[in-house]
Structure formats: structure tokens, C-alpha cells
Design a protein around this nucleic acid. Structure first.
Lengths: 121, 121, 121, 121
DNA sequence: GTGGTCTAGACCACA
DNA sequence: GTGGTCTAGACCACA
């Protein structure tokens, strides 16, 4: 399911968020699908339920999933959610572009870099 | 000189690092130039000397500057340093590209996004 | 009958309460009419009998319906009940108005908003 | 400062959020003002730092405040934040209007109710 | 000192 | 059982 990397420095809840979004992108999770409960996912990953709770809360706020008290958490099928996710991703990407520029990389280099990565994947 | 943005969420020491690298890229700082002392820069920016110290230490580690005990810190003229900085920047940028892809953005969108940012700046 | 929206965040029992009150307002339920039994309604909506039970209990407490042991639940024809329901609803609405004011919305904006909603519905 | 009501059923972190927004509306908090630190506010209110942390995190995400690790939390002067707050408030208000309608109140009654509240305040 | 993350564990409403 | 809130307390990066 979701691979956690404790050495990455990326907060666990962020890795969960990214992991669930990725699973949705890949089609492994579809609209209406039930997610593992907060406690179940926590124990299967060996982390604290609060951490899962935090990830789910953020995903819900972004419209990627929705939670029903007493029933569980489910994947939204709302296309709006995709848009929200993409907006956030694009903003973060722009930040990275600026950062690269600030460190002396030129726009053409960045574009070339992106194009080369296309072939790899 | 260097503009700090406290709201950006980027650590101050990182902003310092980027700022000094940028000044070197722009030619405002050249090989052999003396940098302001840790205390001077700290007080002129209104920040903690520890923060400047950390930035200088990282820059030295990357070969962008070098320190002479009792004399101060100076800009390296070694072209190697530029390469190292650029390598690090490129690696981080690639990570950002991957992340954006994982969140559903397509390569063409990213390229378009980069091109549009070129016009703005 | 009653449409449940699991994504709304409104507790199911509250949706049931609102639904039954609405059916009464609309005239679909009149004084003396028998309500479906707790189990019947629960199974026809695919929800837990406890949830229906809770809704019925609250409706009875407010005088909207009444229960006869061994016979079932019935709609009150008492006009008093309507008044009680309306009083509660009005109190909650006033709370919402205050909250909106506290967050900087002006009375005129609220009125305009309500008027616009009239057209939509 | 901020009055907490433990009996209200409203989560403490929500009361904090509303309280800070209200203080900003009233002009008691202006752009750039430092907020009490997470720990300070927690101990002065007799609650857990985590709860304050949660409130601050949500306020930051909404653009009402911004936090700088190691420095503290500050009130945004960005007018955008007001817009975000107002949007959220308006959405909540609309929900309340719908709820009132569902319970049998008529639009005209709601408008009259709002108008009467104008005189009181 | 300051914000941010995380664990451990309790308690509540809801289903 | 399930999500949500809260406390208590530890630890980290940053300033």
C-alpha cells in the first residue's frame, strides 16, 4: 500500500497524503471506495492513530476524501477534488522553479531537465 | 542586498544561502570578495547571528565561500563551487518534478508552466 | 421519502428529524398518521435502528410525534408542536446570524444572501 | 481576551479560531501584530498546547495569520485573508438558512428576523 | 524560546 | 467500531 520513509524528513502525515492521492491517481482507489479506518491504517503502518487522523482531516478539507463519523472514510468521486489537488501541486512546483532560478539554473536548463525526465518515466 | 521574507515559510538561513548564491550569480559578489562578518550581517538584517553562522557554514561546505580564522569569510572563485551548487539545485528540482507528476500534472503542463514563468520574471 | 446525504457532515439522526418535520410541513404527514416502525424505516434506509430510534425520541420530546407502546409512532396534530420546532429553529438561525456578523458579514449582505436563495429554491 | 465555553459543545480550537478572527475584526489585532506563543496562550487559557497549535495551523492555512518557526505567530495584513474568512462564513450562513427552511421557517420570516437583530446590536 | 510533528492514551458522539 | 477532540509529554529544527 503506502511506503513510509522515516529518513526522508517529510512528515509522515504528508507521506500519507501523497500516498493516498497517488493511489487515487493510479486508479487503485476510486470514488466511493472505503479507506481503511484511522485505527486500522495506523496499526498496519505501525504509527499513531493521531497521525492518520491528521492526514485524513487534511485530505477531507481538500475534498479528496470524506469522512462520516461512525461509518468510516471514503474516497470522493467529485472531480472538484482533482482540481484542488492539481492547484496545490502546481503552486508547489512553481515554488521549486523559483528556487532553482535563485540558485542560478536557467529556464532553458529546467525545461530540458523536465523533457529528459519524460523519457525516463 | 538580501531581502528576507518571513511569511514565505522558507527558513531564514536558506534564504541567506540563496541570496548569497544569487548575488554571486549576478556578479555582485566575485571571487575573493570579503563577505560581511557574521555579526555585521546579522545586525544589519535584524536576525540572530546563529542563523548567519549556519548559512555561512553550509555555503563553505558547498565550496561557495571560504573562511579564514580571524580574518573573515570570502567568496570562492573556484568554478567547481558553482557546479556543486547547481547539482544540488538540479537534484531538488527533479524531486519537485516527480512530486508534481505523482499528483497528476503532466509533463507538458509543467513545461508550459515554466515557460510562462519566464515571461513574468 | 427522506434523502440522506452522508457527505454533508450532518448526523444521520438530524437528517431524519429534519426530513420528518419537512414532510409534516409539506402536508405529506398529517396529525394521527402512523410513521414507519423503527426497524422498517431503518432497513428501508439502510441505516442502524439505533439511529432511527434516536431521531424518534427527539421528535417525541419536541412534541412532533408521539409513541404508543406496542402500537407504533404517530404524527401529533398538536399545533403546539409546530411552534416548538419553529422556536428551536429560529434560535439556531439567530445563532448563525450572530456568528456571521462576528466574522465580518454585514446585515445587508445576509439579507441579500437570503433573498437570493429564495430564487434558487 | 478569549472566553472559552466548555458547555457549548463547540470544539475549543474552533472557539479559539472564532475568537482570534473576532479580535481582528474589532481591530484589537492588526496586521503584523504578534500573537501569544502557542505555549503561552495554552497555559494562560489552561488548555493543551496541541489545541492552540491546531487552531493556529487552521488560521494560517486560511491566511488569517502566519507562523514563523522559531520566531512566533503573527497576524496577516493581507486583505485576501478577510475574503477567505468571509467566504467560509457565508457558506456556513447559507447552510443555516437551508436548515431553517427545512424546519418550516419561511424566507420572509428569516429576513424579518435578521432585520430585527440589526436593531438590537 | 518558538513552531511543528509525533506518540500514547482517554473520552465523546454517532452508527 | 468509527471519526473527532483533547490532554500530557517528548523531540526536532530554527532563531
Amino acid at each position: 500500500m503506502i511506503q513510509l520513509d522515516y529518513k526522508s524528513g517529510i512528515p509522515i502525515y504528508d507521506q500519507l497524503i501523497n500516498g493516498i492521492i497517488r493511489l487515487k491517481m493510479l486508479g487503485a482507489l476510486k470514488g466511493g471506495d472505503a479507506l481503511p479506518s484511522v485505527r486500522t491504517l495506523a496499526s498496519s503502518l505501525g504509527i499513531n492513530p493521531n497521525t492518520v487522523q491528521k492526514a485524513y482531516a487534511i485530505l477531507e478539507e481538500r475534498g479528496v476524501i470524506y469522512s462520516v463519523s461512525g461509518k468510516g472514510s471514503f474516497v470522493s468521486d467529485d472531480n472538484e477534488s482533482d482540481k484542488a489537488v492539481r492547484d496545490i501541486a502546481l503552486t508547489e512546483f512553481k515554488k521549486a522553479v523559483l528556487d532553482a532560478k535563485h540558485k542560478g539554473l536557467k529556464i532553458e536548463e529546467l525545461i530540458k531537465c523536465v523533457e529528459e525526465m519524460e523519457e525516463d518515466l
